[in-house]
Amino acid sequence: MAEQAQYEELIRQFSAFGAVKREMGRIMPSDCPSGSAAVLTLLGRHGDMRMSKLAELLAVDMSVTSRHVAHVAERGWIDRSPDPADKRSRILRLTAAGEARLAEMSRLTCRMLAERLGDWSEDEVTQLTALMARLRASFDDCRVPHASHPALPSDTEPRPPTAPVLEQTPRTPAITK
């Protein structure tokens, strides 16, 4: 188990994520804020879906999802069509313009990462990707309490969760909110 000092250093290093996200945000097209980029990325990765599924994947409230969806729909990057199974719901899908915007954002992001991580080995980039996926999975696990992740009593030291199984993910850069 990691020591208190290791967790404290980890907390300090988390500030680097904010700096990286800000720099990535600066290279994105001005008409595509991070929420819109996340919508396009998730539709590109997972395909057509209902708004409720998108809200779940974004891990935000339905009203926030609705604003992001309205923004990308106004620009013609997605299509909202009636769900054949439930006419009250809409199915969201990328349009050709949305696919082009997503490809452009991916090129910009990959170019920036290649520049910044140019002196990293392929194994180091792979290891970072796996560790970040594991970190995210650990926090996703914590959203739903269950027997294997009981809430910690307030008088205990922090403990790392058990290691989740990593899933293979596409090599599309994650653009999140």
Rank of each mutant, 00 (worst) to 15 (best):
L94C: 11
R45S: 00
D31R: 11
D79E: 14
L102N: 11
S34E: 15
D48K: 13
V64Y: 00
K87P: 14
T65Y: 01
L42W: 09
A59Q: 07
M28K: 08
L92P: 10
S52N: 10
L54E: 05
S89L: 15
G35W: 08
G47K: 04
S36V: 13
M51F: 05
R88Q: 14
L108C: 05
P82F: 11
V72Y: 00
D79V: 10
M51G: 13
R101S: 09
E56M: 15
R75C: 04
L57E: 10
A97N: 13
G76V: 00
K53T: 15
A85T: 03
W77Q: 06
K87F: 14
E104M: 07
D86S: 06
A96T: 08
P33K: 13
P29I: 05
V60F: 01
I91R: 09
R26P: 03
G98W: 06
G98I: 07
G44Q: 15
A59S: 07
L94Q: 11
R107Y: 09
A70E: 09
S81D: 05
L54K: 04
I78T: 07
M62R: 15
M49I: 02
S36H: 08
K87S: 15
D31M: 04
R75D: 02
L92T: 09
V60M: 02
M51T: 13
L54H: 05
M49P: 02
G98F: 06
L58K: 06
S63C: 00
R45V: 03
R75N: 07
S63N: 04
W77M: 11
R45G: 00
L54M: 09
A103H: 11
A73M: 03
L92N: 10
D31G: 11
L102C: 09
M105H: 01
E56C: 06
L43D: 07
I27F: 10
M51V: 12
E99M: 13
S89M: 13
T95C: 06
D48H: 04
S106M: 04
A103D: 14
A73R: 06
V72C: 01
P29W: 08
S52G: 08
L54Q: 03
P29N: 12
A96Y: 04
M51H: 12
A55T: 01
S34F: 08
S34W: 07
S89G: 08
S66K: 05
K87D: 15
L58P: 06
G35D: 13
